[in-house]
Write a protein that binds this DNA or RNA. Sequence first.
DNA 1: GTCTATATTGTGATAGAC
DNA 2: GTCTATCACAATATAGAC
Lengths: 198, 198
Amino acid sequence: MTRIHSDTEEIILLAAKEIFVRKGFDSVRMEEIAQLAGVNKSALHYYFRSKKKLYDTVFEAELLKFITELDLILEQDIHLPHKIEEFVSTYINFLFENPHFPLFILNELNNNPERGIRIIKEINNKYSTVTKQIGSVSEMLNLTINLLSLCTFPFICGPFISKVLFDNNVANYNLFLHKRKEEVSNLIIQSFKTINSN
Amino acid sequence: MTRIHSDTEEIILLAAKEIFVRKGFDSVRMEEIAQLAGVNKSALHYYFRSKKKLYDTVFEAELLKFITELDLILEQDIHLPHKIEEFVSTYINFLFENPHFPLFILNELNNNPERGIRIIKEINNKYSTVTKQIGSVSEMLNLTINLLSLCTFPFICGPFISKVLFDNNVANYNLFLHKRKEEVSNLIIQSFKTINSN
DNA sequence: GTCTATATTGTGATAGAC
DNA sequence: GTCTATCACAATATAGAC
């Protein structure tokens, strides 16, 4: 994690995060970040040298924070069904706070997989605790992918779903997503029980 | 749908689609498209006036093609479980052919929701047939979102999952995704049966 | 319709005063 | 450390010959 040396540096980082997460890299102008931060454009170069370095600092810090949080839940010493409920609830709450986050990470992983993967591998030990709890690597993979899919995708499609299927009523869509927590947990736990009863 | 007037125009459109779908708008250079199409950069402006107009033509045609194909399956006159299997299989096959497609559409819907939504609404009549088959709008929403999530997300995360969880073995990951078709269908049908047995 | 050359513009980056 | 002014360059777009 990059160390922060001054208040201005931190203000710039916060503004940069806000904008990069929402819009990616190429479509963002340095001027835009400077304005949101309330500093002169030159300050950005003074503190971070280049747009790329500023972006990289933001990306690496954000990804690290994110993976660490998920890993904390997954490595907890609790039974699997309870862990799944915990994960779904915590993760969906996080997504409500950071709705643009998944697309930001996914685009970056798509453009430049190596870096993101390095960071993830440093933290994540292949869901070791969860794998032991499930007993099968292949089933762990399906469970992990199902879990991430069902939680993340509705947020990635947020603007679309709320406008097409909820007649532009965002509040209704948010309510629906909160209620969905239980639906998602049940679906996953059910699939897990089906597997283990074989 | 835009009408095509000449061979050169069509060659340009194909090249533009290939590159825009993979990289979005801002990070693409006109020169890049011209080279892939094997034409002079000026030809792009001659046929499409501006980068934006070329991009718009590609986006609208691709989204229309995509929605139309999905809608065809959803409106088929077959029983719901069979329809779900059909949908999962057809859609996942489509994603194998067009792995960059979802992120392309999702980014565009995120940046500029209105246009995409207009196109979607023109084709899609709110899954009317499926809604009738399920009987409840709320359950239809969950089913639709679950279905799209479970199929699409593993492709959006493709580069990441194959490298982190499959030790960079893309073939193994593809095999896993093909096998997952059944898993996804079963999970959805199961959830549907649970609902209807209440 | 297709090419070369050039105009125009946007924006990342730097120099230098304060 | 912060500002203004300016550079440098890349990329879209156009003019005009053929």
